[in-house]
């Protein structure tokens, strides 16, 4: 995909460095938080929240999803729906048991 101009690519690389810094800082934050020994629920919520931000940064910029084609979005949205079903429904089954 060499449709991008030299200037654009240079700008993108600067963004990559910024994202890198953000990821490193967030890693330290999440490790730091774990030393606070918050209640389990809060710890899970916070850890997943930070991980989601980090994950979104990687997906959006390193995997350049931020400027991707509709077809890729469609595939990923479909996948995310089934992903959520796969996580939630067995858990729902666990909590809604007879006996």
């Amino acid at each position: 995909m060499s449709g991008h101009s030299v200037e654009e690519i240079r700008r993108e690389t600067r963004v990559y460095i910024l994202v890198f810094v953000a990821l490193a800082v967030l890693t330290l934050v999440t490790v730091g938080v774990s030393y606070l020994h918050l209640s389990f629920g809060a710890a899970v919520g916070l850890a997943l929240f930070i991980a989601s931000i980090k994950g979104s940064l990687v997906a959006a910029f390193f995997m350049h999803l931020i400027s991707e084609r509709r077809l890729v979005y469609a595939v990923l949205i479909l996948t995310m729906i089934f992903f959520v079903a796969l996580i939630l429904l067995p858990l729902g089954g666990y909590h809604d048991r007879l006996g």
Binding site: T30, A43, A47, I50, A51, G55, A59
Partner: peptide, 17 residues
């Protein structure tokens, strides 16, 4: 990057919680 992304979720769920 995807492999990196998986690790980003594995790290807190296995090590920090």
């Amino acid at each position: 990057h995807f492999v990196d992304l998986v690790w980003i979720f594995l790290f807190p769920t296995l090590y920090l919680l």
